[in-house]
Design a protein around this nucleic acid. Structure first.
Length: 509
RNA sequence: GGCCCGUUCGUCUAAGGGCUAGGACACCACCCUUUCACGGUGGUGAUACGGGUUCGAAUCCCGUACGGGCUACCA
């Protein structure tokens, strides 16, 4: 193992990147940055039958959006490439053959049909799925049961497909120390002879992860808890191939759970919340899965709540910037139990971040949301003023549309219903007079507007409170939004007067 | 079925032998606000169960139950 910390995120490009994957990226990134190490992305595309067009590009787009860029990857370069396993095919064969030479692995010639037959024949109530293990390996077609001549004949026959399997020892205890769970041990008798090299010459995950972690000098390996059962295979491969002293330190991350078990891409569709970082259009099914980005999450919030799903710094702080996370993150404080994803809490984080971020931080994102609805955002300072006024009442970025629409477009409908019951001649006169006064108001500020409004109300002996709702309806169209005189200030004289007149005419008819 | 991991309010979690088990989300009530929010105050609500160890256990050990993961020439 080298001195520099080197960690990797190793996704399989088979579809959208979901919460669990992003959190693994995050923890890798935080740990790397905290230790002045390197964060590597390696594409694990050894299963050619699961190739999905665009999936790799999508992964990198997601990383870009959340701002966690790798130091090394197929597109970022680096000295330990290639970073796509499909481009490293030739490397793995050598190691697999070495294992055979050393007696730790063997060739197997069983066809899929034969494997299925074996599983069927051995199936009992107590053993519903027989593995290819020490109990059956001597009854199968492989280099342990065949003579050397027969094996060589089969290997040289192009028609015959073969794989290389690890030969799991019997009754050995394999153990290792997990950074999150402590010591974990397994009885090798109950682990099967996993395929290491497939018939198409590609390695399986088990071989590839060990070989590549070694060649890429990975020091700490983070992965989901679902990998724990195959860890003894990997530990043994490290022992056989490179020595246990070279093995990275493992940390098996707790799973992120949906409402029933491991969070799946299907959960999103089922429960109406996103599980992917960004929108993903499945090229095979044509189904679009929602992403946090498009739903209106800011990356700061997305990262923040994912970091806290299974980790905390021991204090009561919940809002962390990326810089703070880099500083405070620690593997020891990762919770061992799985965490159920709570969309309501995710939205709360986003709300907190919208309040925290400045108008300057947000303006481009808000402008994009508005222009997607064909709304022109006028000049920059106007947009920033609007953002400052409404951002506290937005939970998602997309809420800016509804919350700020009336600043950019005259409302098409006015909720006159709400004021009609208390509407009378005196109020009508008030607004007629007021809009005339407004034309000559020397300074157009919210406080000037308010005092002028108050004065006229007093003169006419009308309660100011009874006039505020009508004014709001005139300017906003509905019963919501920021303080009404601040709205008028931003709308400016011409538009303010025009809206008042419109509603007055409306109420007349 | 077997193996592995886990178990504190509905959810995310704090408390790593010692105060009435703390906080956050959500929910409810009140206050603030002549709109809607923000904000503030308070409330409901948890150590799965049974044994041990100990002066003392949410915390350590064992068992049970429950939950989850894995059990492919997928990762």
């Amino acid at each position: 193992m080298s001195d520099t910390v080197r960690v990797r995120f190793a996704p399989s490009p088979t579809g959208g990147l979901h919460l669990g994957g992003i959190r693994t990226v995050l923890y890798n990134y935080l740990f790397a940055k905290q230790n002045n190490g390197k964060f590597i992305v390696r594409i694990e595309d050894t299963d050619q039958t699961r190739f999905v067009a665009g999936a790799e590009e999508y992964i990198f787009n997601c990383l870009k959006w959340i701002g966690l860029e790798p130091d090394e990857s197929p597109i970022h370069g680096g000295n330990y490439g290639p970073y796509r396993q499909s481009e490293r095919k030739e490397i793995y064969k050598k190691y697999a053959e070495q294992l055979i030479k050393d007696g730790f692995a063997y060739y197997a010639f069983d066809t899929p049909v034969e494997l299925e037959k074996m599983r069927h024949d051995f199936k009992t109530e107590h053993n519903p799925s027989q593995q290819y293990d020490h109990n059956v390996r001597m009854k199968m077609c492989n280099s342990l049961t065949l003579s050397a001549d027969e094996v060589n004949k089969l290997l040289s026959n192009k028609e015959v497909k073969s794989v290389i399997r690890i030969k799991m020892p019997e009754k050995k205890i394999v153990s290792f120390t997990d950074l999150i769970r402590g010591e974990i041990s397994f009885d090798t008798s109950v682990v099967d002879d996993k395929v290491l090299l497939k018939a198409d010459g590609m390695p399986t995950y088990h071989l590839a992860v060990v070989v590549d972690d070694y060649l890429m000098k990975i020091t700490h390996a983070f992965r989901g808890e679902e990998w724990l059962p195959s860890a003894p295979v990997h530990v043994l491969l490290w022992k056989y191939l490179f020595g246990l002293d070279q093995m990275p330190q493992w940390a098996h991350l707790p799973l992120i759970l949906g409402s029933s078990g491991k969070l799946s891409k299907r959960d999103g569709l089922k429960y109406g919340f996103p599980v992917l970082a960004m929108n993903w259009l499945d090229p095979k099914t044509g189904v679009m899965a929602n992403g946090f980005k498009e739903l209106g999450f800011v990356p700061e919030a997305f990262i923040n709540f994912l970091a806290l799903l299974g980790w905390n710094d021991g204090t009561e702080q919940e809002i962390f910037s990326l810089e703070e996370l880099i500083e405070k993150f620690s593997i020891e404080r990762i919770h061992a139990a799985g965490a159920k994803f709570d969309y309501e809490k995710a939205k709360w984080f986003n709300h907190e971040w919208l309040k925290k971020l400045t108008a300057t931080d947000l303006k481009e994102k808000v402008a994009a949301i508005l222009s997607a609805q064909s709304i022109e955002t006028k000049d920059n300072s106007y947009l920033c003023n609007v953002i400052d006024l409404v951002k506290d009442r937005c939970i998602l970025l997309t809420d800016f549309y509804e919350q700020s629409l009336f600043f950019f477009k005259t409302p098409e409908q006015f909720d006159t219903e709400s004021i009609l019951s208390k509407w009378d001649e005196s109020k009508k006169e008030f607004f007629i007079d007021w809009q005339i006064q407004l034309m000559n108001l020397p300074t157009w500020t919210s406080s000037a507007l308010e005092s002028n409004f108050k004065e006229l109300a007093q003169q006419k002996n009308i309660k100011q409170g009874d006039l505020l709702l009508p004014l709001r309806i005139m300017l906003v169209g509905r019963k919501f939004g920021p303080p009404v005189f601040q709205i008028a200030e931003l709308l400016e004289k011409k538009e303010t007067i025009s809206r008042i007149k419109t509603v007055l005419a409306n109420l007349n008819s």
